[in-house]
């Protein structure tokens, strides 16, 4: 029993370390996009959900408005609400504890918590993963931002070409089945087709609305709301 819990904590640390490395790239990309060191670190502290953070700075870096970035970030954060539904009965938190737990409701903590047979183990997994990830995610962000801050021109290192690679790595574990893959291709095409004609950042909103309509009106009944299984960072990439 004790060794099982030690195993959980060890896994949580492993996930934290992996996501710390991933946060280094967030810090670098965010700084390259034009955010200050303080803004970059603030995002990791208060937003603390990887895909949303990457979208926010990606849109800003590509010349979109901060509000277009904010909308994309919030839309990407919507899935965390579904994770919260699954976690609420497991965690049994109220008041201040619930307010603190909410910040940790992301892909990895959900995946770690719901994989346990016992409620106690679920709670240990959730909090251990949450604390390890939060600490190392913010540390990694600071390291990446500091390193890039020191460069006079991050373009020399090709860092301006890094965001699409980050998005692709976040996307890959979600499109292993045929339908999500088709949705991804369709979304990419639609975004490119409307891009020349609408304000910057708007293609993302158009795509979000279309996939929402598709989901509501077209899909046959199936289960949803599952976190990326092998996720290991606030964005849910799978390494």
């Amino acid at each position: 029993m004790v060794s099982a819990r030690r195993g959980i904590v060890r896994d949580a640390l492993g996930i934290g370390i992996a996501s710390g490395a991933y946060a280094v790239s967030f810090g670098a990309i965010s700084t390259t996009a034009g955010l200050s060191l303080l803004q970059t670190c603030a995002l990791s502290l208060v937003m603390f959900t990887g895909a949303s953070q990457f979208a926010m700075v990606g849109v800003i870096g590509a010349g979109g408005s901060v509000w277009a970035g904010a909308a994309a970030a919030a839309l990407l954060g919507a899935r965390n609400a579904l994770y919260g539904v699954r976690l609420s009965s497991l965690l049994g938190v109220r008041g201040l504890r619930r307010a603190a737990a909410a910040q940790f409701v992301i892909d990895e903590t959900t995946a770690m918590a719901i994989a346990r047979d016992e409620v106690t183990d679920s709670r240990i997994a959730f909090w251990a993963t949450g604390f390890a990830l939060f600490a190392l995610w913010n540390l990694g962000t600071l390291v990446g931002a500091l390193a890039t801050h020191a460069l006079s021109n991050p373009r020399v290192l090709g860092l301006d070409a890094a965001p699409p690679a980050a998005f692709l790595a976040l996307l890959a574990p979600r499109i292993r089945a045929r339908e999500p893959f088709a949705i991804a291709i369709a979304a990419a095409v639609v975004a490119l087709v409307c891009l020349p004609f609408v304000p910057a950042g708007t293609p993302l909103l158009i795509v979000a609305i279309l996939v929402g309509l598709y989901g509501v009106f077209r899909l046959p009944a199936s289960r949803g709301g599952r976190p990326a299984r092998e996720a290991s960072s606030p964005g849910g990439e799978s390494h």
Partner: peptide
Amino acid sequence: ARLQRTIPLVPIALLAALVATQT
């Protein structure tokens, strides 16, 4: 049920659109 199956599709569409437009 519709909300449950639609919300997970949103990140897929948004991330794919981000890959395409930013590349």
